[in-house]
């Protein structure tokens, strides 16, 4: 939909503004790529580096990966496991909770939604510190499972709002029909509703996966000894001043997430977040 009167003559200006904006948006990512692939003397080791390097090499990446492979591998695996647990748990808890919400009287469901919404306001740090003490006692400190359980908090409300949106878009009579056809409560939930809601559930899984993959605050407090990728990057760039490695690892972190973002662009919409957060 167009929100303002469209003057055909101004299209050219819109295009030019959009182009300039795109270039500005893309430059930082471009910088990451050239630092990873150009010879260091033309990037981080140059006093005034040029945006257009001339000599390229793969040795930056190879050094970073080979010299460091076991730590990198461990971080990669930890990030992968954590994100997958977070995504799976979000899809599971989120789907059931959303369905339950859709079946409750409005007054109760909006109360529950307010509680969920309220939980998103609590800072991760405020939660992470006391949890770290409890996790230490429970043996979950520094484990992928423990970290995933904490990160789940960040994604769960959003997941529920997202899947609720999907469920609301399903035709209501389908479910009634399933009951008439003899399906019980859970049969209709799993054999009729779930397949129909699958796109939304998958999107919620991927978005949760991605948020965990990116998550920093819980990770640095709850899993500092065997870090995830974001923490490894932080340690390299800041603590160890190892910019080349940090950039190389950044590339690894970024690629899957960019792919997911593009796959999900249909779902990452303002009104999704809006519908959830207006409560």
């Amino acid at each position: 939909m167009v929100s303002e009167y469209n003057n055909p003559g101004s299209h050219k200006y819109f295009f030019i503004i959009a182009l300039v904006f795109s270039i500005i948006v893309l430059i930082p990512m471009y910088v990451l790529v050239i630092i990873a692939f150009a010879v260091p003397s033309q990037t981080i080791a140059a006093y005034y580096p040029s945006l257009i390097p001339t000599k390229f090499t793969l040795s930056n990446l190879m050094h970073a990966f080979s010299g460091y492979s076991s730590i990198l591998e461990a971080a990669f695996i930890k990030s992968l496991i954590t994100a997958t647990i977070v995504g799976a748990l979000a899809a599971f808890l989120g789907f059931h909770a959303s369905y339950g919400l859709s079946k409750l009287p409005v007054r109760l469901s909006s109360l529950i939604i307010s509680v969920l919404f309220f939980s998103t306001m609590i800072p991760s740090l405020t939660i992470a510190i006391p949890i770290s003490v409890s996790f230490l006692k429970a043996g979950l400190y520094d484990s992928a499972l423990g970290l995933a359980l904490a990160q789940e908090l960040v994604v769960l409300p959003m997941t529920i709002f997202m899947i609720t949106g999907t469920l609301q878009s399903l035709p209501k009579q389908i479910e009634l029909q399933a009951r008439v056809d003899g399906a019980g409560f859970f049969q209709s939930l799993y054999s009729v509703i779930f397949p129909l809601a699958l796109p939304g559930v998958l999107a919620a899984f991927l978005l949760s996966w991605m948020m965990s993959w990116d998550e920093f605050t819980f990770a640095i407090i709850l899993s500092p000894v065997h870090p995830t990728l974001p923490i490894l990057i932080y340690l390299d760039s800041t603590a160890r001043g190892n910019i080349l490695y940090a950039s190389a690892f950044s590339l690894i972190v970024t690629i899957p997430v960019i792919l997911i973002t593009m796959a999900l662009s249909k779902f990452i919409k303002g009104n999704y977040m809006a519908s959830g957060l207006t409560g």
Partner: peptide, 25 residues
Amino acid sequence: IFLLPFGVATIVTAVIFHDIFSSYG
């Protein structure tokens, strides 16, 4: 294109801007 940075991890954003605004290089 405008949406792309949303997919870049916060820490990676930090690394990139660190590179861009480094006092040396």
